[in-house]
Amino acid sequence: MNGQIVIDGMTSGAMIGLGAIGVTLTYGLLRFANFAHGEFATWGAYIALVLASLLGTLLGGADGTIGDLTFGWHLLVALAGSMVLTALLALALDSVLFRRLRRHGSGMVLVIASFGASLALRSLLEFGFTGQPQYYSREIAMTVAIAPGMRATLDQLVVLGVAVALMAGTHLMLTHTALGRAMRATSENPDLARLAGIDVADVVRTTWLLGGAMAAAAGVFLGVTVQLRPTMGFELLLPLFAAAILGGIGSVPGAMAGGMIIGIAEAAAVPIAGAQYRAAVAFVVLLVVLLIKPTGLFGARER
């Protein structure tokens, strides 16, 4: 396999992994596949776009760039703001919709509701921003040679590094803090978690906040390396599900590995099947996983 495929695949794989964290955590905890999760990435990207331009207006003058990157510190501030706001959006969607439906039992009703929420959220952005692509920056991305036959834009490298750091941080939080332990415990056995004094409602809120924030980061990174479109998150949804299932539901390292594998498989498939079929690669991987090992790479439990 050539090195270019690996570096391109890893960059998009890192974004898939970031988004899949939320999918795998909410799936593990609330036992439903959230079809609206991709929209958190889209909303994250557009919220950052608005925040960055607001910053530009408030401070007067356009944002410069950091070194040879295509973006400046306005976008970094906007990224942080967008992660917070998107986390709150995820929380809000849970409290107006999913939390109420959970009280009635059937998990599949939640899936239908999330499918409806996904279309509504996406169309709302289409209403506000039209279907035309948008960009954070008009700068030309500088590429560097990392190894013979391997070139990457500086943007890609920064995105890859930050994404991996965010994923690693999430993993450390889950394994090494009391809150993380409580989250893992609740995901495994909510009743016993209650008996152990864990406020399950708190854990659910934390999970939405974390999933929403990570999805927002994935959306912003996708906007930096590709472009912003109202359908960007929806198109990411199938890779997100495939990565979460491939990695094993509930497992953050699994989501990370699953994302990387899907990203590289997509990049590798382009020269063979053509770029137009890229979106079907995740589906093929998903089918193979479901047929061979439905518990995924890191999944302990049959689901």
Partner: peptide, 10 residues
């Protein structure tokens, strides 16, 4: 509880 009384994955 009688069943599921430890966090098996932890």
């Amino acid at each position: 509880p009688q069943t599921g009384n430890v966090f098996a994955g932890l």
